[in-house]
């Protein structure tokens, strides 16, 4: 089993989003960075598949030089090596991102054999395009199921599940395949200290692709109105119970 998982570095906003003066990005001066929880589950799944079936798990990101942090985090959990498509920090749209990922996949497969499975998040945490995985799948001519909450590789079969309307849809795909996954697929492990030590020494290959022009052109970002109010304090501690129940009765949810 050779598995690839694609992750995107995004800022971890806290209770309030602050934009840069030009309204083109989130002000990240005081923020940490992460990947989407969907992608975290993708990394965990790739590592588990290789633990169970042998082979190699590879993590890929397209992002600024600092995105190496996200690759090392994934390697600390168990990914074997990284591919870094280095950008100047400008955002790439899904078409462009998929194009660069496809080129990197083809180069890697030529050098070291095909990926049985390529995992994506169902959507990126920040821009939420809902399409990069599908674009890559189509370009490679591989089947793709999206929004998965369970995957199982058997003998020559690949079963995966989607949640819908409280129930589940089951797919069976031939490999090689592409999947997009959701948080809840598994419970990702925390990296261990030795895992972190090893991650620093794992191989990482970097290259610098060209960014093509985008047909979906961002004009500006806007923080939605009405986000900031001041809650009416109903009381402190247990003494507030009576005021809370008054409110619940008034809304009509107590019977």
């Amino acid at each position: 089993m050779k598995a690839l998982v694609c992750v995107k570095r995004v800022p971890m906003t806290g209770g309030r989003i602050v934009l840069t003066d030009d309204e083109q990005a989130i002000e990240t001066k005081h923020l940490g960075f992460a990947i989407s929880p969907h992608e975290e589950c993708g990394v965990e799944e790739a590592v588990r598949l290789v633990e169970a079936h042998g082979g190699e798990s590879v993590v890929l990101t397209l992002g600024p030089p600092d995105a190496e942090e996200q690759l090392r985090d994934a390697m600390a959990i168990g990914a074997d090596r990284g591919i870094h498509l280095v950008t100047d920090g400008e955002e790439w749209d899904p078409e462009a991102t998929a194009g660069a990922i496809v080129a990197a996949v083809i180069a890697d497969e030529t050098a070291s054999g095909p990926f049985d499975l390529i995992l994506f998040g169902n959507e990126s945490a920040d821009s939420g395009g809902f399409q990069t995985g599908l674009r890559v799948a189509y370009a490679l001519g591989r089947p793709c199921a999206t929004g998965l909450k369970a995957v199982a590789v058997g003998d020559g079969s690949f079963r995966c599940e989607q949640e819908e309307g409280g129930g589940r849809n089951v797919y069976e795909l031939p490999l090689p395949a592409v999947v997009t996954v959701l948080e809840g697929l598994n419970l990702p492990r925390y990296p261990s200290v030795p895992g972190r030590m090893r991650a620093g020494r794992k191989p990482l290959e970097a290259s610098t692709p060209e960014r093509p022009a985008s047909r979906l052109e961002r004009a500006r970002l806007v923080v939605p109105a009405g986000e900031s109010k001041q809650a009416e304090i109903l009381g402190h501690g247990a003494d507030a119970a009576s005021a809370v129940v008054d409110l619940l009765e008034q809304i009509g949810v107590t019977s």
């Binding site: 806290g14 209770g15 900031s228 001041q230 809650a231 009381g235 501690g237 507030a240």
Partner: peptide, 17 residues
């Protein structure tokens, strides 16, 4: 931060409230 998105609030330990 939730105090600036909530309509109502009780300040206190949830295990008492």
């Amino acid at each position: 931060p939730i105090m600036s998105v909530a309509d109502y609030a009780v300040v206190g330990d949830l295990h008492e409230v």
